[in-house]
Amino acid sequence: MTKPITELKEYVAQTRRDIVRMVHGVQSGHPGGSLGCTELLTVLYQNVLRHNPSNFNMDGTNEDVFILSNGHISPVYYSALAHSGYFPISELATFRKLNTRLQGHPTTHEGLPGVRIASGSLGQGLSVSCGIAQAKKLNNDDKLVYVLMGDGELQEGQVWEAIMYAAHNKIDNLIATVDVNGRQIDGDTKDIMGFTELRSKFEAFNWNVISMDGNDLNDVQETLSKAGVLSGNGKPICILMNTEMGNGVDFMMGSHKWHGIPPNDEQLEAALAQNPSSIGDY
C-alpha cells in the first residue's frame, strides 16, 4: 500500500539520522551523497519497488530490482534496506566495523540480504542492470530494473558503453537515475570534467529522459510513477535527478566537502536536531 507523504517524511528524517549516526559512529563513510539521495531511496523502498524483503532472492525473478552503482552512498542504501525489512535495523550499528555485513561499499560477499552486486569501483552498475533487464526479458518477467548512478560517475567510459547498448537493444524495462548533485570528491563536476547538461546526451543516444527534484518527495513519487508508465515503450528511461549533496543537514549543503568525511560529536548533534523522527534510532 502506498504510504502518504507525511509518513514518508518520517522515514526520510529517520534515514538522515541513520546516515549521520552511522558515519559518525565509525568516523568514516560518505554522508553527502547519501543525504542527497535519501528521498529517492525512501520512495523506492517504501512505495515503488514490488519486492519481497522478508524472503530475499538473489535472482529477483518477478520482482523489481534496484542496483546501486555509486556504492559509496552505502549509508542511505543500508538504511533503506533495513527499514523495508531486508535485515534488522539494529545491524546498522555495525556499519564499516570488522566482521560486518555492512561493508564500506555494498557487497554480496558477506551475504547481506538486498544487495545483488558489489559496487564501489564506479561505472559498472548500469551494465549490470542491463544484464538483469535482459534476463527479465528472456524470462517474460515484466518487473523493472532500477539503477542509481552519480553524475560524476558518468565520467567513467563504461557508463557510455552501457548507455549505447541499452538504447540499441531497446532495454525498456530499465530506469536509470542519475544523481545530478554537481559535486565530486575534488570539487564541482563543472570544474573537474564538465559535461554541460545531460539531457541532450541521453536523448542523442535515444533514451527517454525525464527529470525531477530529487529532494522533493512529491516530485520523486510522481516522477517514479511516470517512469514506470513510460517503461515498455522501446526506449530505456533516464531520470535526471537534481539534488543537493548533504541535503537536510544545513552545514553539509552547498559544497563538495562533505562527500566523504564524518561529522564530529557537535556536528552530529546539530544534524540530528535538524532531523527529528518518531520512528526511532537503531
Partner: peptide, 19 residues
C-alpha cells in the same frame, strides 16, 4: 559491440538473474 567492460558487467547481471 567493441565494449568489453560493458560485456563483463552485463554478464554479471545476467548471472545475478540466474542465467
Amino acid at each position: 559491440g567493441i565494449a568489453e567492460a560493458n560485456m563483463i558487467s552485463m554478464a554479471a547481471g545476467l548471472a545475478t538473474a540466474g542465467k
